[in-house]
């Protein structure tokens, strides 16, 4: 009996204010999801001005979608009660997810319940979601096309940038040729070249690849060169005293030693590549998600256009996250919080 009482006391001690607040934070996404569903289904919609282009229709798709999230977070919260790792991850993520759902809620209220945005330019989440689902095969096809352009251009540009940057870093003579041009191109925004690009007779696809490769290669060249130049002299000389050959000096010393800088260049290059992709697709390439977005805008099909924007932004976020993941693994030998 006494044992049980002690145990109860110990548990009560653990249940201090801080842990209660933490538990509430973990549960917040469920609360906000429930609120979204309640408001969406319960509160009266303000009558929207009729348009010939968009059918005003409210379905349960949005409520179901948010409901799935609510269920997901509920299960996660249950698991978090028993497993510390799940709890830590949820604790870290919950504020972010809460903010995202709050933004969903605010947008939903602003468009449907208060009607403060002009229609049909601001479709409500339910309409966007429906447009994405109904046209999902086309969206996926466009996404695949865009990704293939992005990755091919990025790999060509990144590879070229590393080769040029290492050459410029190791050889003073090569540097004289490469550095001025790299600096020139780095100060000119990639958009500047688009009007000329349109006339180069290599086809839409290659033109977009070329534009992306050009945009990526410039920051990668500059940052790689800086990285190679910053390698401590004694690191290179230590390698030389072991009798290392010229080729091995490049791929076994210069490239790994300047890898932190190369990755900074690759990250900057990814930003340029994403910009270049959108420009290329909105200015000529007859496929891809940018083209899809522009086409739907032309048809005044705003819900589908918003859907394309959602897919595109998530895709850009994902490619940057993948790059960051690779960087973290490749630079595991480096101390620092900047990784």
């Amino acid at each position: 009996m006494k044992n049980v009482l002690n145990k109860f006391k110990a548990n009560a001690k653990k249940l201090n204010v801080k842990s209660v607040i933490n538990a509430v934070i973990r549960a917040l996404p469920i609360v906000v999801c429930a609120l979204i569903i309640a408001v969406y289904l319960g509160a009266p919609n303000k009558i929207l001005p009729p348009t010939p282009f968009a059918v005003i229709e409210f379905t349960n798709t949005w409520a179901g979608f948010i409901g799935a999230f609510a269920l997901f977070f509920f299960v996660w919260n249950i698991i978090a009660l028993f497993f510390e790792r799940a709890r830590k991850r949820l604790q870290k993520g919950a504020p972010i997810y809460t903010v995202i759902f709050v933004l969903f809620l605010l947008y939903d209220v602003a468009v449907l319940k208060l009607a403060i945005f002009p229609q049909p330019f601001f479709p409500w989440p339910d309409a966007i979601l429906r447009a994405m689902i109904s046209d999902s095969s086309m969206l996926l096809k466009s996404l695949g096309h865009s990704l293939s352009i992005l990755l091919i251009g990025y790999i060509i540009g990144g590879g070229l940038g590393i080769v040029l940057g290492v050459s410029a870093g190791l050889m003073a003579r090569a540097r004289q040729f490469i550095r001025p041009f790299a600096r020139f191109f780095s100060s000119v925004p990639i958009v500047t070249w688009v009007p000329i690009m349109v006339f180069i007779p290599i086809g839409f696809y290659l033109r977009a690849v070329f534009l992306i490769a050009l945009g990526v290669s410039v920051p990668v060249t500059l940052m790689t060169m800086n990285g190679v130049l910053a390698i401590p002299k004694s690191t290179i000389e230590a390698a030389r005293t072991f009798g290392i050959g010229k080729a091995a000096m490049i791929y076994k010393v210069a490239v790994p030693a300047s890898a932190p800088s190369i990755f900074n260049g690759l990250a900057a290059g990814m930003g340029v590549a994403c910009t270049a992709l959108i420009i290329a697709e909105m200015m000529g390439v007859p496929a891809g998600i940018g083209w899809y977005m522009d086409m739907q805008r032309g048809f005044l099909n705003y819900a589908a256009m918003y859907g394309a924007i959602v897919v595109l932004s998530l895709t850009f976020f994902a490619v940057n996250a993948v790059l960051n993941f690779i960087k973290k693994y490749a630079l595991r030998w480096k101390a620092g919080k900047d990784l």
């Binding site: 690191t235 000389e237 005293t241 072991f242 480096k334």
Partner: peptide, 28 residues
């Protein structure tokens, strides 16, 4: 030219930062 018959140790930045101690020796 440099030769492995003449080893050299520097004041700093001698080790290859991107390799662990064992792999530094393997490199040499």
């Amino acid at each position: 030219k440099p030769s492995p018959q003449r080893g050299m140790v520097f004041q700093e930045h001698s080790l290859f930062d991107w390799l662990n101690v064992r792999k530094n020796i393997v490199f040499a």
